[in-house]
Design a protein around this nucleic acid. Structure first.
Length: 506
RNA sequence: CGGGGCGUAGCUCAGCUUGGUAGAGCGCUUGGUUUGGGACCAAGAUGUCGCAGGUUCGAAUCCUGUCGCCCCGACCA
């Protein structure tokens, strides 16, 4: 007992944030590394989270007029070549399929049957979807096309990290084609707002919406919008993107239509996506030194009932009561849905079970033992409070009390994240201040430092590049502002149209 | 692709300098005692010490080669 560490996760966030993150992914049983470098196995608890994200987002996409379709995993090499910037952006990280058959030679399987044209495994699907849109679009009457696909994509990353950057990942990609530029821009903005709402309302994730600078733009896009979040080591993470592609891909794929005036014009297209990176973001924003903390609205299960069975004679009565409580909760609603509940019937020490669920980040634990049975109550532990803090709740009060607490947790996580993000965001006015802000005290093993800097910038790519070279700090976005206030760029002394958001990025 | 490091039980690692037939903790199995905060006792299972070659009576240990992985850099919606 004396060996029990203070926290479930070691090292702590303060001690070594990257290592803490890896331990949380493992301890929360979200995912593990596979034998293929850069690829991951998403375990049921992590995949359940993704299924929730899919389900909520899918409804939001449908509500905004989109439908799902599916396009192939393999893309002819020639397709990628059609859009010059796109090639430059993705060629280096493409997996290439060159053969279609294996033959046994000297007891070993070797690739045979070389393909006439190599296929790439999709790193994103603009080109192959574009080539089909070209067939479907003949007239302005065929527009808009509003499609989404749920898929896996492959980007051969050199330095993978579970959920944040893996060679293969899961995502959704929306692809739309429109008659006018205005409509396409409107779509791009609308879907960014969908992501913002989803992040805020479901993931309890405060995000900053804005536009990427040219250097951070999606290859081939005219404009890239993003939502940026701050995680607990004060770095920025891009949680979602929405691209206005102009007519670039329409030209490359020949998506042409006859206008109302009878002329021929290229369609205006957009694309937008979020990925399993959201899971990593969630862990890094809300997690603590005991593991994951999941917001109730997105958790695969919101409540776990943990039977404590000190003596065999209590087993059947406690398990029976656990079933009753589960049924009671399934008939109770939170956020417009039945509460998602499960019972941990594993035949192990109750407190071990409790710790397992703490590490997984389930919002609520209901512990039931003989004493509770007698008193008609449960011991309730909530994940946003310390592990040992318990509230005794009468079983017949649960249908009232649990929805209240779930609302509180959801709100509490959002508030905490907002406070954290705000307390590490500064208006920085001078170059000296800026450099000091982003320079760690210990250069060999940098401590958690910095944050977001809202600073004026004259719009020069050279200034941006110099800052990146000096500090590894980039412009995360040019925040959307109703009334942008001009000022002076501290790096050049020149005038600046508005403040932009600087930070170190994942 | 450059620089550094590491491959020993399911996991984390010790042993290697000074060669003598394989270890710890955790986990796992079985039995018992426990049980309101990550239990304890006892017994047990698990390794071609990354792979190949060499030196040697004898190699986890020394030498050569090779493969894989990790970290730093470069690169990256």
């Amino acid at each position: 007992m004396s060996k029990t560490p203070l926290n479930a996760i070691s090292p702590t966030r303060q001690e070594d944030f990257p290592e803490w993150y890896q331990q949380v992914v493992r301890a929360s049983e979200m995912a593990e590394n596979s034998e293929v470098r850069g690829c991951m196995v998403i375990k049921p608890w992590g995949y359940g989270l993704w299924e929730r994200m899919q389900s909520v987002l899918d409804q939001m996409f449908k509500a905004t007029g989109h439908r799902n379709a599916y396009f192939p995993l393999f893309i002819p090499l020639s397709h990628l070549q059609k859009e010059a910037e796109h090639v430059e952006g993705f060629a280096k990280e493409c997996a290439v399929v060159t053969h279609h058959r294996l033959e046994m030679q000297d007891g070993k399987l070797v690739p045979a049957g070389e393909l006439q044209e190599p296929l790439i495994v999709r790193p994103t699907s603009e080109t192959i979807i574009g080539s089909h849109y070209a067939k479907w679009v003949k007239s302005y009457r065929d527009l808009p096309i509003l499609l989404n696909q749920w898929a896996n994509v492959v980007r051969w990353e050199l330095r993978p990290r579970l959920f944040l950057r893996t060679a293969e990942f899961l995502w959704q990609e929306g692809h739309t084609a429109h008659e006018t530029e205005e409509q396409a821009v409107e779509e791009t903005e609308k879907m960014l707002r969908v992501y913002e709402t989803f992040a805020h309302d479901y993931l309890a994730l405060p995000v900053i919406c804005g536009e990427k600078t040219a250097s951070e733009r999606f290859p081939g896009a005219v404009r890239t919008y993003c939502i940026e979040a701050m995680v607990q080591d004060r770095k920025a993470i891009q949680a979602g993107t929405s691209h206005f592609l102009g007519q670039n891909f329409a030209k490359a794929s020949h998506i042409e239509f006859q206008t109302r005036q009878g002329t021929l014009e290229y369609a205006w297209t957009t694309s937008w996506g979020v990925s399993t990176r959201l899971i990593g973001t969630l862990l890094m924003v809300h997690g603590d030194d005991d593991g994951a903390i999941l917001p109730p609205r997105i958790a695969a299960s919101q409540v776990v009932i943990i039977p404590f069975i000190p003596k065999e004679e209590f087993r059947s009565s406690i398990l029976k009561k656990a079933e009753e409580i589960a049924s009671l909760l399934q008939a109770t609603h939170y956020a417009g849905e039945p509460i998602r509940v499960e019972i941990d019937t594993r035949d192990i020490n109750g407190s071990t079970k409790s710790w397992d669920w703490i590490k997984r980040g389930i919002p609520l634990r209901l512990e039931i033992g003989p004493r509770d049975l007698e008193a008609g109550c449960v011991a309730l532990g909530r994940r946003d409070h310390p592990p040992k803090e318990k509230e005794l709740v009468a079983i017949d009060r649960l249908p009232v009390r649990l929805p209240e607490i779930l609302i509180e947790i959801q709100q509490n996580l959002l508030n905490r994240a907002k406070e954290f993000s705000l307390s590490h965001t500064y208006m920085i006015e001078s170059k000296e201040e800026f450099y000091a802000f982003f320079t760690p005290n210990n250069s060999t093993k940098p401590e958690i430092h910095g944050g977001f800097a809202l600073t004026h910038w004259n719009g020069s790519p050279e200034v941006e590049a110099k800052i990146k070279e000096d500090l590894k700090v980039t412009i995360r976005c040019i925040p959307f502002e109703d009334n942008p206030r001009p000022g002076i760029c501290p790096f050049t002394g020149e005038s600046s149209p508005q403040r932009v958001l600087f930070g170190k990025a994942y």
